[in-house]
Design a protein around this nucleic acid. Structure first.
Lengths: 136, 136
DNA sequence: CTGTATCCGTCCCGATACTG
DNA sequence: CAGTATCGGGACGGATACAG
């Protein structure tokens, strides 16, 4: 079912693939896509997104939104009012991407306790060997 | 079946979730998981992995493998021979994670031309405005 | 072969100030 | 409200040397 095309090699050396992987395999990108998908009207304003994704800075929010727009995953609706209003909305492509992303998120939510246990177990056996993972 | 728990909020503020997202949403982690899944015998040696994932440094390979091991996604088989031999293999949990990952990879392979076109179109309309994306 | 240790440049990203 | 501009600390990650 998940068979890859016949020409696919075992090595992961496709440049375009890796280029887009950099976009998709990005924490803020994923969180924003999920947040936009969950939006009531499928749209969210800049400030709403900032609230909905705790910890993201204004700079990162702007940058990530621009990159997602560049990749055709979302559209920016600009209303020249005063004060100005901007609404972000996933494109068809972006909503489409939500299928695999959603399954990934689902998987994480279902398995994170298992992983947390694995981490604790591992750390117990490798005491004081930092792995660079921040505690919350 | 895929219903989320009732307490699930629209905001993405779950710490454990984000912690593991940092692991999964990592370029090298994803590439290594895919590579291990594609491995003939489901196992690969350190040097094989280094060849199969072009561009990864020895340091990043070691670090990423350790983190994946810590999260219980792969096991490290150490053979105390001379010279030493080490084989890496996905755990059940790791293979399980390949389902959503595989779909994501599949999606990227199917849609990257669309995205490339979107990028070119966007860049045409926003000339000289760098987006921090490296060319290949 | 499979790492570990160290150095060090790059750039990510948060904080702050300012604009339309 | 929704950004842009700028600065700076710190983490990321490559290169190299060395160890078991």
């Amino acid at each position: 079912m998940t068979n890859l095309p016949a020409h696919h090699s075992n090595d992961v050396d496709d440049c375009a693939f890796r280029s887009f992987l950099d976009r998709v395999a990005d924490k803020w990108s994923l969180l924003l896509i999920v947040t936009l998908e969950n939006a009531p009207k499928q749209r969210r304003r800049f400030s709403e997104l900032k609230k909905s994704v705790p910890g993201i800075s204004q700079r990162m929010l702007t940058t990530t939104l621009r990159n997602l727009e560049r990749d055709g995953l979302l559209v920016r609706h600009f209303f020249p009012e005063i004060p100005p209003r901007v609404e972000y909305e996933l494109t068809t492509l972006g909503k489409n991407l939500m299928c695999p992303i959603g399954e990934l998120v689902q998987w994480i939510r279902q398995n994170w306790t298992t992983i947390t246990n694995a981490r604790n177990e591992f750390d117990k056996n490798n005491m004081a060997k930092s792995t660079g993972v921040k505690e919350c």
